[in-house]
């Protein structure tokens, strides 16, 4: 894995690389079994006791459930140093967790995107901050 020491997520508690693998951070309710992303996006089953919500890391890999190709720059407060349009955006399904999560796709050959293909979690460098750190977001790329 590339050097992650000088990277910082633009918003904390969404993507983790402390284990040596890039993975999304969420939560699981042990009462109703529902997974949440982001972890504050509670989506309890009605009548759930809401007891035993714990932080989890999602698996690194999932399957592409849908995607689109965005042709126009996303308006502020989105910000990237380099032009990234057109860019892919995917919904990646984590089967055991029964959840689909959105994310920018770092693939540049957008013709290769196909529903069902295997994807892995990665990061996208957005810009350099005043402390000379690379500010990043989570993203997905095809498993090669």
């Amino acid at each position: 894995m590339e050097n992650m020491a000088n990277k910082v997520a633009r918003i904390p508690n969404l993507v983790d690389w402390s284990t040596g693998e890039v993975r999304l951070m969420g939560a699981k309710c042990n009462s109703c079994g529902t997974y949440f992303f982001p972890k504050e996006h509670y989506q309890h089953r009605p009548d759930c006791s809401r007891e035993g919500v714990e932080d989890v890391l999602f698996p690194k890999k999932g399957k592409l459930a849908s995607y689109t190709i965005q042709y126009y720059p996303c308006p502020a407060p989105f910000k990237t140093e380099n032009k990234i349009t057109p860019y892919g955006i995917g919904l990646v399904e984590f089967e055991n967790e029964k959840i689909q999560i959105t994310g920018i796709i770092t693939e540049t050959d957008l013709k290769t995107l196909k529903i069902g293909m295997e994807m892995e979690t990665t990061i996208l460098e957005m810009f350099t901050n005043e402390e000379k750190q690379q500010v990043v977001t989570w993203a997905f790329k095809a498993v090669k």
Partner: peptide, 26 residues
């Protein structure tokens, strides 16, 4: 933390029509 709309704009790169396109593709 309070407003996940902030995450979708700052981190997600997700203007409204993308949500519709993702469903449309499905």
């Amino acid at each position: 933390v309070q407003d996940r709309d902030v995450i979708r704009w700052k981190m997600g790169g997700l203007p409204n029509p993308i949500y519709w396109a993702l469903e449309c593709r499905k």
